[in-house]
Nucleic acid binder design. Structure first.
Lengths: 343, 343
DNA sequence: GGTTGGCACTCGATACATTAGAGTGCCAAC
DNA sequence: GTTGGCACTCTAATGTATCGAGTGCCAACC
């Protein structure tokens, strides 16, 4: 798909003009942008061809041109300027994020908040999880005679807990047994290696203690299951309402974002460090009028999670991508640091 | 403020009719509802008086009547039927909520989700916190040579944690010292009793260990501060978009809900077990077109937190109040149960 | 052959007028 | 106190005319 240089220039101008104004772009304004080097009729001819090639679209016959998804894609891949954040901007981001170091979820939440504010889009992020994550520590905290809090910590710093209610009183022997089992069967393993079947086998091997221990072990395995999939954080959903092109689909979109499951599949499926999904390139029809920009963050060199935005297809890709990329870099840094794995 | 019985009847009819249809109510339809016992002219006269008294309003001269905020208030206080949920409905709610027992936040989240679905409004809930809450347990989990996770558990089942990064290596003595300090100065106290000044005093008394211990103690006191105020959970925000009367203010409203602080003040300020705030009765101008219905839930007989909805003033108070009330009762039960305080 | 000015044409947006209908307020009569 | 009747008001819906931005096409030009 090669396009003459002038067509590329015109396409880029249409995309940029449309991104800033939101109005269909006419041949006249392009002529001006080109410094009146050519007449509007020439531009019209070029634009007609770009339309025929599928890069531009017309809302209606007598309107200006608007980039098609294919047009955006070409722009993003080949025409868009590559900006970098100034070091002042980098510093600002760094400082704003730094205040929340220490709590992985808070860091991600804050990063999402910053992203939402910066981009005017909704921001998503997924909590860290990779194949090297292991169960680091398990604790049983007695709360009442028959209840205890099961606490669960992974090597990526994710902490989960759940109250467990037993049928009988929790004895010291049970607590000891619990720690022994945890150490033997859970610690150092990957959360998704713990299966319900395995837990049943363990329980069965306990003989007369099986009945009393089952609730505790079930609770623990539930926590494993919960830790085996990353959670999604959403920020700035209300920003979606400010985009007039999403006016009608905003409610549906927000509904979609709420049910985390499809979205989390989306976040974990992308392999590149930076993914740009425009319109129908997203795998869900609810997103067909939206674009996503997602960046991975790394903890100790490993892929850990993603961070990105969801907005209309009409967003300032060139300006936003560097921010997203840099924020994901910062998040990775902060989370790695917290885990002492930076060096 | 006494109103003739017929006026009361008419007011109730206008409110109910308007709630179901969303259209201003004319004298004709009231006449029909009254079984044509009187003519529309009579009803018109009554409605004119109700308008004069401030219970009804007219969107414009030749439109039907709409309840004013005062009208809603009168309806809610004196006219509204008192419904109770059927035991089948109670069972359904109970079963839906029960699956999440064990994790206080999940219970509240789920309760909010149910509420949002049931009411078509946004749901809010606040995590449990009362003056009897105390710090139950503090743990220090080493994660790297210089980093450790400080874990913090309150008597109401709230668990918090934070990674602490020290300047020097964390030694066994430091860990022991930490536990001693925690036991002496933190355990059994109310989180808000811990002040920064107090922590400084403690640190100062440690002599040459002060420098090394400070980061750990600061982290701990930060966790106390975080635990000293309840968190807000929001569900079903997108429901707000479905109400045409909020069309213009939905974005602003969602923005307002996001900044938790004013809202949490609102939630904690209400004293009654059930609060109904209509329009301007809310203390924030962002809520002046909205109504809130809030119910307290109790843990072990103590006020713990609130649960409720935010929607337009035009909501079906009579139908929704029982659901909210019952859900808050269920939440209280489930959370009490988890803490072994039910009997 | 690419470029240009000119021109007819399309179509949404805007403004304005008209109409229909729902609902009111008022009043004289019951 | 209640009623039917009636003039009045205001919105919403519909139709009509106009404006203008932008297009496509074409003959003429370099």
């Amino acid at each position: 798909m090669d396009i003459s240089e002038r067509k590329q220039k015109i396409l880029a101008m249409v995309v940029e003009q449309y991104i800033t104004t939101g109005e269909p772009v006419g041949s006249k304004s392009i002529t001006v942008l080109l410094g009146n080097a050519v007449s509007s009729a020439t531009v019209r001819a070029e634009m007609a061809e770009l339309s025929e090639m599928g890069f531009l679209e017309q809302p209606h016959t007598s309107a200006g041109r608007v980039p098609s998804q294919k047009g955006y894609r070409y722009y993003v891949d080949r025409l868009m300027g590559k900006y970098e954040l100034s070091s002042a901007e980098q510093h600002t981001l760094h400082n704003r994020l730094r205040t929340h170091a220490g709590e992985p979820e808070k860091v991600l939440e804050k990063a999402g908040g910053i992203l939402a504010e910066l981009t005017g889009c909704a921001a998503v992020s997924s909590t860290p999880l990779d194949e090297h994550t292991s169960i680091k520590r398990v604790e049983l905290v007695p709360m009442g005679a028959k209840t205890a809090l099961v606490v669960f910590l992974t090597s990526s710093g994710v902490l989960k807990s759940r109250v467990c209610r037993c049928d009988s009183e929790i004895t010291i022997e049970m607590v000891e047994l619990f720690y022994n089992i945890a150490a033997a069967e859970f610690i150092e393993k990957h959360p998704s290696d713990i299966h319900t079947a395995g837990v049943q086998t363990i329980a069965a091997s306990l003989g007369d203690k099986a009945l009393a221990m089952t609730p505790l072990l079930v609770t623990l395995s539930e926590l494993c299951a919960a830790a085996a999939q990353s959670e999604l954080l959403l920020e700035g959903q209300s920003n979606l309402l400010n985009h007039k092109e999403l006016e009608n689909s905003a409610a549906e979109l927000m509904e979609f974002l709420k049910q985390a499951e499809p979205l989390s599949r989306l976040l974990s499926s992308k392999r590149d460090d930076l993914s740009i999904l425009i319109g129908k390139e997203n795998f869900f029809k609810e997103l067909e009028n939206s674009s996503m920009i997602l960046a991975r963050y790394h903890i100790g060199g490993q892929n850990a999670g993603s961070l990105g935005i969801i907005g209309p297809t009409r967003i300032d890709y060139a300006r936003l991508i560097p921010s997203i990329r840099y924020l994901s870099y910062l998040v990775g840094n902060l989370l790695s640091e917290a885990l002492d794995e930076e060096s």
